[in-house]
Nucleic acid binder design. Structure first.
Length: 566
RNA sequence: UGGGAUGUCGUCUAAUGGUAGGACAGCGGACUCUGGAUCCGUAUGUGAGGGUUCAACUCCUUCCAUCCCAGCCA
């Protein structure tokens, strides 16, 4: 029975149904899944779906999940990616224990099996060039034609294949093909290539091999060797399943895993294709795989998204076979929900406006008690200093406020969070008419945020003491792209045409309350009334850098939009 | 126009012949020292047409739409 004690109870899905039936019927005794990334790029949120699925199933049904690198193409793979993938899987909260494998671990076995296929007359060495193979494969509607090398003798095939392995032939001059059916309506079955010559160094096997097995051949056999019961992959492999099954049916493998396909994750306003992500990195459009705007796990981690939020998100989106595009809003919701419970509240002014309290003594300093997290009493309190000179947010003052304005405006009174009520007496502007400073008065009886007369003050705004605050850099992020579905773009346009020019905005000289001087990389805060922020690792002792993780819900801006102000 | 798949609120996802439900987004309200959080309320959906059945998202049938496949990539 599934053990979901510590998980929220989300709806079941068709894969769970299959597994429960297999367990009930005795078709399998213990669930064994695997997460099989190719180490040719960084993991993204789409991989997180697969990771949570595979490891989650193993956890819930008392099975195990292997981590297996699908490293059959030495020209594209690298240890850098292997390392990042392991880091990301761990960070997400999953552990493969001693079940770490590489498809390259099976190269010897795979080779043996290939010889068996040859001996059984089910594979042959083909001398056609890549172009010729393509030309003879036929089209989607026209059958292919058989290779002139298709009926070589077993002896000749064996000899040639062994010489391929020995490095006697040039890359591309020959390959090993399965002998299936050139007229199959499924092009994957038209004598697929199963070994090619690649004189490239492999990140694990070095120069031991000059022939490398193809994915279709490798994956099913690797699954079988590891005793995988349910081999989950994305929809585009559905057409490959007959081939997956074909190899396993021909060979004396220990078991025959079941391949099950599900729809990959698409997220609005971003891209999930490894090719595009790689291009964004290599073109310098973003600052690297871990740029906080990237949908990579490294990027999201740096941005400040938590593994808990990502796991919750994956649980909420479910698993099915229909193509889908999930609202980015849902991910943001999950992040807010998690951080609301965890992040301490602090005050930071992103766009400072100077405020002078004219009736406050020049040299006086007070400290106010501030609750760190109203959602978590154990987070405790801190002291926040106050003086005659303050900064507030430019957006919190309006000379001609719209209807429903709760914040500061000429003559209006607001509460400074945790401190005093202040009233705006005078607006100071520069020559071009920009507001540069406000002269206010405070009500000494409102100390701590209350008055004896209990009069209502609609607005509460955040602030910092000009004398005690310090400057920091804050990086604001928006969606990487301007349209929700990057796979659905105008004719003749490229996805790069839809890059959001405002995806990053760097703010210098933001004013932070002094308690923020002591922070650690990756630490997360709620900047009161603004959003959640995470300390970036670009931070130095004299220049702290914060990343916007996600803004707070903002019903005021929403209202302004409805009123037509924005 | 070959083969494989998929169509349920705006979005994602349940319901496997028996009251179409949940979440996010939306809308309305309450409350609030964050216009945050929280709470309450509310609208919107079975791609279309036939058929079987007391009863159809579910079974049959015809159609329509969308996605994937012609790498010696995975």
């Amino acid at each position: 029975m599934p053990d979901k004690k510590n998980e929220k109870n989300y709806p079941s899905n068709f894969i769970r149904t299959i597994i429960e039936n297999d367990l009930a019927s005795g078709k399998c005794k213990k669930v064994v899944t695997r997460f099989p990334p190719e180490p040719n790029g960084y993991l993204h949120i789409g991989h997180a779906k697969s990771i949570c699925l595979n490891f989650g199933l193993a956890r819930d049904y008392g099975g195990v999940c292997h981590l297996r690198f699908d490293d059959t193409n030495p020209t594209k793979e690298d240890v850098e990616y292997v390392e990042s993938i392991m880091e990301d899987v761990h960070w997400l909260g999953f552990d493969w224990q001693d079940k770490l494998f590489y498809a390259s671990d099976y190269f010897d076995q795979l080779y043996e099996y290939a010889e068996m296929l040859i001996k059984d007359g089910k594979a042959y060495v083909c001398d056609l060039s890549q172009e010729e193979i393509r030309a003879t494969r036929g089209t989607l509607t026209v059958p292919g034609t058989e290779s002139p090398y298709r009926n070589r003798s077993v002896e000749e095939n064996l000899d040639l294949f062994r010489r391929m392995k020995a490095g006697e032939f040039e890359e591309g001059s020959r390959c090993l093909r399965a002998k299936i059916d050139m007229a199959s309506p499924n092009v994957n079955m038209r004598d697929p290539v199963i070994y090619r010559i690649r004189k490239a160094e492999h990140h694990r096997t070095g120069n031991k091999w000059v022939i490398y097995p193809m994915y279709d051949y490798t994956h099913c056999i690797s699954d079988a060797i590891e005793g995988i019961t349910h081999s989950l992959c994305t929809l585009e492999f559905e057409d490959h399943r007959p081939l997956y099954d074909w190899f396993l049916d021909q060979l004396p493998v220990p078991c025959h895993p079941q391949q099950i396909e599900f729809a990959r994750l698409n997220l609005s306003y971003t891209v999930m294709s490894k090719r595009k992500l790689l291009e964004l990195v290599q073109s310098g459009t973003v600052r690297g795989w871990d740029d906080p705007r990237m949908p990579t796990l490294a990027g999201m981690r740096r941005r400040g998204f938590t593994p808990e939020a990502i796991r919750d998100f994956v649980d909420r989106i479910g698993v099915a076979k229909a193509d889908s595009l999930v609202d980015f809003e849902l991910l943001q919701f999950c992040v807010r929900e998690d951080l609301n419970k965890k992040a301490n509240r602090v005050m930071a002014v992103l766009h400072p406006l100077k405020v002078t309290i004219e009736n406050y003594p020049e040299d006086q300093v007070e400290e106010f008690e501030a609750i760190n997290n109203p959602e978590d009493e154990s987070a405790g309190i801190r002291m926040v200093p106050f003086c005659k000179y303050l900064y507030i947010e430019q957006d919190d003052f309006s000379e001609n406020p719209p209807k429903g304005w709760h914040r500061l405006s000429p003559g209006a009174e607001v509460r400074l969070k945790h401190a005093y009520y202040i009233t705006c007496k005078e607006v100071i502007k520069d020559e071009s008419g920009n507001v540069t400073e406000l002269i206010c008065t405070y009500d000494p009886s409102s100390r701590g945020g209350w008055t004896p007369d209990a009069r209502k003050v609609k607005g509460t705004i955040h602030w910092v003491s000009a004398r005690h605050s310090f400057d920091a850099e804050i990086r604001l992020y928006e969606n990487l792209f301007t349209i929700p579905n990057i796979n659905d773009i105008e004719e003749g346009k490229d996805y790069r045409d839809y890059l959001n020019p405002n995806s990053i905005k760097v703010l210098k000289n933001c004013k932070l309350e002094p308690s923020l001087k002591e922070v650690t990389i990756g630490e997360k805060f709620q900047f009161l009334r603004q959003g959640y922020f995470s300390v970036d690792y670009d931070s130095t002792a004299d220049n702290l850098v914060f990343n916007l993780i996600v803004t707070l819900k903002d019903s005021w801006t929403k209202q302004l939009k409805k009123m037509g102000y924005v």
